Amino acid sequence: MCLIVVGWHAHPDYPLVVAANRDEFLARPAVPAHWWTDAPELLAGRDLEAGGTWMGLSRGGRFAALTNYRDPTRHRPGAPSRGTLVRDCLTGTDDAEQRLRLVAEVSAQYAAFNLLVSDGRLLGIHESTTGSVRLLEPGVYGLSNHVLDTPWPKVELARERFTAALARLPDADAFLGLLRDDEPAPDHHLPETGVSADWERWLSPAFIRAPGYGTRCSTLILQDRDGKVTFREWTWNERGEFASEVTHRFNTAVSG
């Protein structure tokens, strides 16, 4: 994923709300969210190149999602796929903090990343660039290709619009609107992450259209206080146009 906004116990009726965009090279094959045949408890999209995933849920109420950290100097050719970390978090049985500490012990083997994990009771994050593991208090959090809540324009705007959308639940249309925002940030607000000025512009909105790269899918997760989950995912084609949609509904053992 390249933009994740999480509402953790930020709404009285929905303890977990997630709105996220996955940005990836257009040529990299993937399939939309589905229940995996080789891990039947896991609901997630799948990267067909390395076999892992970028975000998913388990029937038991676990949640995990990962973003890359944008810094060309940290590129690690031949490093293992970070998507396997998400899969292992979802299929594990330990609590969120224990899992994140296990990941932190090996994270130097991977290209830089941020990993959000919830066991249904706790939500935490590991940032491989800082080495930190921390549990998150109730609130709204934004994560892109830097550390949590870095004040990039798209992160700040997405958090603001997400907070407004929470107040409109169960009407969820506003969440898709914030994920489809393709307005680039003004040049004087662009971050400097080591890529060219053109790429900083292309990567600055929530919804990305760039040469050979872009937002491949958008996801909305709603878990209510009774443990009922709605997982909606929209897939976009190489022009950023609607291609398909899937919706999964199920009950977890977790309640708010």
Rank of each mutant, 00 (worst) to 15 (best):
V195C: 01
D182Y: 06
H188S: 13
Y213E: 03
R209L: 15
Y213F: 15
P205F: 05
A206F: 05
D173N: 11
R225E: 11
K228F: 13
G177N: 09
A185W: 03
G214S: 02
Q223K: 10
L178Y: 07
D181W: 08
T215N: 04
G212E: 11
R225Q: 13
I221M: 02
L176E: 13
P191T: 08
W202C: 10
S196E: 04
L222A: 12
G212I: 09
H188F: 10
Y213I: 03
D187C: 02
K228V: 13
D173E: 15
L203Q: 03
D226Y: 10
P184A: 03
E183H: 09
L222C: 15
I208L: 08
S218M: 13
Y213K: 01
R180D: 11
H188Q: 13
A210R: 11
C217Y: 07
L220S: 09
E200V: 08
L190E: 04
D198H: 09
R216V: 06
A206E: 00
K228G: 10
H188L: 00
R180C: 14
D182V: 06
R216N: 03
E192Q: 13
G177Q: 12
T219M: 12
L220P: 09
A172Y: 00
D198P: 02
D198L: 12
H189F: 05
L176N: 05
L203T: 04
D226F: 11
P191Q: 08
F207C: 03
L178T: 05
T193V: 14
L176P: 02
R225N: 12
A210H: 12
Q223W: 02
P205D: 03
R216L: 04
D187P: 07
D173W: 07
D182K: 08
A210T: 13
T215D: 07
V195S: 03
D224V: 06
T219S: 15
D181V: 08
C217G: 03
Q223H: 07
W202Y: 15
L222V: 14
A210E: 12
L176K: 00
R209P: 02
A172C: 04
I221F: 06
D226C: 05
R201A: 09
R225L: 09
H188I: 09
R201P: 04
L176I: 05
C217Q: 09
P184N: 00
T215A: 02
L203A: 02
R225G: 05
P191M: 06
H189Q: 15
L179M: 15
S218I: 10
D181N: 15
T215V: 01
L222K: 12
L222P: 13
S196C: 01
Q223E: 12
G177E: 14
A197K: 14
Q223Y: 07
D198G: 01
D187I: 12
E200H: 06
A185I: 03
F207T: 10
R225T: 11
L176Y: 05
Y213W: 03
D173M: 02
V195P: 05
F175T: 03
C217K: 04
W202I: 00
F207Y: 09
T193E: 14
S204N: 00
E192N: 12
R209E: 11
A197C: 00
L176V: 09
D187M: 04
A174T: 06
A197P: 07
A172R: 11
E183G: 01
K228D: 14
D181C: 02
E192G: 01
